[in-house]
Design a protein around this nucleic acid. Structure first.
Length: 161
DNA sequence: GCCAACGTTGGC
DNA sequence: GCCAACGTTGGC
């Protein structure tokens, strides 16, 4: 299984992950999204999607570095992700760690993704999920689209590398 | 368990 | 900044 995770680049972008190399994805506060986080297995690939910005779309690729762990910022009253209903004894929210894999100089815009008419949760009307699975067929098609729209060959990414 | 009111997401 | 489409909350 492949994944797609949304983040507002003003808060956390693919560039932040590239700098950090490995980082913990926290702040998921939706049950369906959390359940997907819990399903993630080490080394599975996930698209990094930039949302709520000038040009929303797929910006890069990452891999699950460490499977789900308790999201500790739910216990931090100073955190925007603080949640009184999560406790150390009975945690409610989880996150996973990701490692940076690739950043395409030209992101694949939501507009262009829509043009391909995939049967994809991302492009379905009213979808607001911040974490979603991606079928292997659609994953490969999106990789091809990303590679084919780059200006230079060395900006491409291939799974075999 | 229903559902109105409210809060959030995220494209535009 | 607007607002559609959800998700959540809480009274009953």
């Amino acid at each position: 299984m492949y994944w797609l995770l949304k983040s507002e680049p003003d808060v956390y972008s693919i560039d932040s992950l590239q700098k950090a190399h490995i980082d913990f994805w926290d702040g998921v506060r939706n049950y369906q999204a959390r359940n997907f986080i819990l399903e993630m297995k080490k080394d599975q690939l996930a698209f990094f999607y930039h949302s709520n910005c000038k040009t929303p779309g797929i910006a890069g690729l990452m891999a699950v570095e460490k499977e789900a762990e308790v999201d500790l910022c739910a216990f931090d009253s100073q955190s925007p992700y603080f949640c009184t209903k999560s406790s150390i004894e009975k945690p409610r929210w989880y996150g996973a760690s990701f490692r940076f894999i690739h950043l395409w100089p030209k992101p694949l815009s939501l507009q262009d993704i829509k043009k391909s008419h995939f049967d994809f949760a991302l492009t379905r009307k009213g979808n607001r999920l911040s974490v979603m699975p991606v079928d292997s067929e659609i994953f490969l098609a999106l990789i091809s689209l990303l590679n084919s729209t780059q200006e230079r060959q060395d900006y491409q990414w291939h799974q075999s590398l």
